[in-house]
Design a protein around this nucleic acid. Structure first.
Lengths: 354, 354
DNA sequence: TTGCCCTATGTTAGCGATAACGGAACCAGA
DNA sequence: TCTGGTTCCGTTATCGCTAACATAGGGCAA
């Protein structure tokens, strides 16, 4: 365990410590101290120990601001996401963080609250720290944001979504096809009168694309969405209950409800069970994301894994690889599309034969 | 909407833009450009427009690394938390973030995974960027971490917990008393045979303190905990179910279950309802945190609000105030203790009379 | 001994911005 | 005309560190 006592003079003067202090305390040049603390270059074992000892006793912490300016290298990776309260993004983050841990790179998180203008300013702020890489959720950005990304001078990975054009690398799933496949599964199970419940947020492009794909899938079977219910605000169980109740009162004939996320789906499921609905016989349900929460519900809600953690990992891998290559950062952009799979759970009938 | 086209020469040469480029493009000195971009000092309206125009057309993004080094001022606030998947910490973060938004300060998040060693290194890493302030979850740190905080040269706020000594300012609740009050409420409602279900993590000091306070509260009534069940891993509904089942099989006579968080409490509640237990008549239940999730459950779980968002806000306010004062950062440390209140919900009997 | 390589350390010159000060231009009042 | 005060903008000197090069001293072969 490193000791970190305080030099009394420093406490008194409040002068921040610099390399020079360590250099004087250990009797070598600043450059040598720098080498020791960065594990770079040849330093004899004796000086190395001497320097480390001095740094520890002083409680010296290197100044990365100066270091970064001098070396033109920063170990920060900007991560721009729309929200932290969504459960989904912390998991992506966790994948990024785990992958980056080994590389000496460090994620720095920025939250946009689904606002394009905020995304623009968060991006500007981040770029002003000249990060080694950038991970941004989504493919939709303002023109200015897109320009900043293109000129960032660092690898950029846009994540979560592959339905569209990326600035550089892209890692995600096709939400359009996710919606489409879910529609196919529902139709295959014989459901015919289908309702959709989702978020009102116009800036949640992934939810929007799922809905579009879903519509497309139903249309292919000559069906359409019979009723829709939208809400604003975070994803919450209670919202799911309320919306489901409203919809089933309005359209009691529906035989399937497709939710744009698991949380409201779970709320809906609880409500349906309480009401005594025969699930999945009379009424089928499905959500989206495959969150852990669903494991503990009375019935397992049908859903689709959105590969959140893996998306984070793959994105981080790309950044890490590019960051190491250094100046040859003009490697071809990667495009990784992951395949979400349907988890039928207990709220969707098995496919009907014929 | 700002346009951010790219100078073709730059695309070709890949030389990063500097203040000099803007200065040349607009025909004024670097200093003037700097003044314009920071809104500081007197600049005539005509030059101001000229400079902004040039900066925009070039797509210039200021280099805060250089700026911070020169001005010895950084607008970053380090936030060190144990986990992001806990639901609790994102809410704290959200409070911090909302409060900081107005001040030009920016939170930078570090995650420790409940590991003291990791906390130490995260702290070291953060301090190397010389942040304007530091918000750290918890009061328990390694000796070295504590020393770093003490010598950070920036305001430090330790949050969540007030049961112990802080390095500088402290904002939180007393988990010991939270546990104690819950015990009192349970006893007052006439429950006598009480089980506890919680996390195994030895580093979750707040959960530990709640348990200690809880024991103390029971002891005051001549009671003790009849059975305990611990688990490791994140808080999950499924865990709550499994643990509850195991405990009730082992100790069928229990009449109250106290959970260390709402998530496992909710799992337990779902299980109990499925099993047909009379809740809260035959069996009472309570959790901790007051998470939004509980609103949508079939029955509202008794819990206690942990004031997460407000804790974040108050911490951010302290940092913001101190950061403005600048050098006179030796203001007396603040100590703010918030009062969590019991939300009895539907899973605890009303207090028995006499 | 000379010459050369190798290791360990020091010296110099920035990195890209800002603080602090200096000074020019201009106006007003004595 | 001179003084003094604005307003606006430029010059100079850092900030703390590292890249790149320079240098010292030793070992070893010829």
């Amino acid at each position: 365990m490193p000791r970190t006592p305080v030099d009394p003079r420093r406490s008194a003067s409040h002068r921040p410590l610099t390399l020079r202090d360590v250099s004087e305390a250990s009797g070598v040049s600043e450059m040598t101290v720098s080498r020791v603390l960065r594990n770079r270059g040849d330093v004899s074992e004796t000086t190395r120990i001497k320097v480390l000892e001095a740094a520890r006793t002083l409680g010296y912490v290197p100044n990365k601001i100066a270091g970064a300016l001098a070396s033109q290298r920063v170990n920060l990776v900007g991560v721009v996401i729309p929200s932290l309260s969504n459960l989904v993004f912390p998991e992506v983050l966790s994948g990024i963080s785990a992958e980056l841990d080994e590389t000496g790179l460090q994620p720095v998180v920025g939250v946009t609250n689904y606002s394009p203008a905020r995304e623009e300013s968060v991006l500007y702020e981040m770029l002003s720290w000249r990060p080694a890489g950038l991970v941004v959720a989504g493919l939709e950005h303002t023109e200015a944001a897109r320009a900043m990304l293109a000129n960032a001078g660092a690898p950029v990975v846009e994540i979560m979504d592959v339905d569209g054009e990326g600035v550089d690398s892209v890692v995600g799933i096709s939400h359009r096809r996710a919606g489409l496949h879910m529609a196919e599964a529902i139709v295959a199970s014989g459901y015919r009168r289908i309702g959709f419940l989702g978020t009102k947020m116009p800036e949640d492009h992934r939810a929007r694309k799922r809905l579009e794909g879903f519509r497309e899938g139903l249309a292919a079977a000559g069906l359409g969405i019979e009723d829709t219910e939208f809400y604003s605000g975070g994803s919450a169980l209670l919202k799911g209950r309320e919306m489901t109740e409203a919809m089933m009162r309005r359209s009691p004939d529906l035989d399937f409800l497709y939710y744009s996320n698991d949380m409201i789906g779970a709320g809906g499921l609880l409500w349906c069970l309480e009401q005594g609905y025969d699930v999945p016989g009379r009424l089928g349900l499905a959500g989206f994301n495959g969150v852990e929460l669903l494991q503990g519900l009375p019935r397992r809600l049908a859903t689709m894994d959105s590969c959140r953690r893996e998306i984070g990992q793959r994105a981080a891998q790309i950044i890490a690889a590019r960051a190491c290559e250094g100046a040859s950062a003009d490697a071809a952009p990667e495009r990784i599309e992951l395949e979400p799979v349907i988890q039928p759970g207990d709220t969707i009938r098995p496919p009907s034969r014929g």
